[in-house]
Design a protein around this nucleic acid. Structure first.
Lengths: 139, 139
DNA sequence: CTATTTGCAAACCCTTTGCAAAAAT
DNA sequence: ATTTTTGCAAAGGGTTTGCAAATAG
């Protein structure tokens, strides 16, 4: 898995530094982390890891299309290693983000929408309140 | 129209200052402006209008549900005086935001989605490249 | 008259940048 | 050996806040 990342980086002409590999691993482990989430997590393993390095690595990965930026949440950007066009469900109660599968309805919808509006959808963000959100910690 | 805003503010227990009325009028005139858009436009009529006042007014209007915040675009928040649940189409080429009408397909889709996922959709943001975007100034 | 709002400046937070030292290929 | 990357500190851009003076009701 790590060596997969090494190869992936090689194809994109990015050097496989330990910091960069850690960022990728953490993106795989935690869904839609913010820069701060990444920084805090990675600093535990490697205390010398700097915030600027996280920013620079995310920037590099973004530029090469290995990561996409999600700016649903307030204030902070979130990042997603799953780069294919897909749907984000943003829970307005707990501010969690879930990737949503393309079910038939969604696919139908997208096809119709693209035909009607002459658009090519890259991302679809749904802001909602979910009745049984698994991330909401209700009291 | 101005008096409508005065009454609207009254119902929300907000004082109808000239600055606040200007913000509302500008939100009605220009779709999805950023704070800076508002500030630049309003400063022309009222040069003493301060940036902090724009922020504070938008904050107050947001708190009272008279305005919603749209954070599709990079870096800057945009604001929308149309507060009912609706759809934003964000053109990734020119960064314009359009409100999209609920057509039948969309309605069908939303109904299905809400049933399947047990969610209540408040907003749907679509990031796309539009083939005939009226706001794109292509060379 | 009282409570809110304004405008200014300072503070704040997230993000970016410049640069020399360190590391990757 | 060359180029990229790291880490630090400083700067940048958008947003928020504290406070005294001005204004709305």
């Amino acid at each position: 898995m790590t060596s997969d990342f090494v190869n992936l980086l090689k194809t994109k002409e990015l050097k496989a530094t330990p910091q960069r590999l850690c960022v990728l691993k953490e993106l795989e482990k935690k869904m839609h982390p913010s820069i701060d989430d990444l920084y805090e997590a990675l600093r535990k393993e490697n205390p010398s890891m700097s915030l600027a390095t996280v920013y620079k690595n995310i920037g590099a990965l973004k530029e090469k299309g290995l990561v996409i930026e999600v700016n649903i949440a307030d204030g902070k950007m979130r990042y997603d290693i799953y780069t294919k066009p897909h749907i984000h469900l943003f829970c307005q109660q707990c501010h969690s983000i879930c990737d949503m599968d393309y079910n038939e309805d969604l696919f139908d919808y997208q096809v119709k929408l693209e035909k009607n509006q002459k658009i090519e959808i890259n991302r679809l963000d749904i802001m909602a309140t979910t009745k049984d959100c698994k991330f909401c910690r209700k009291s």
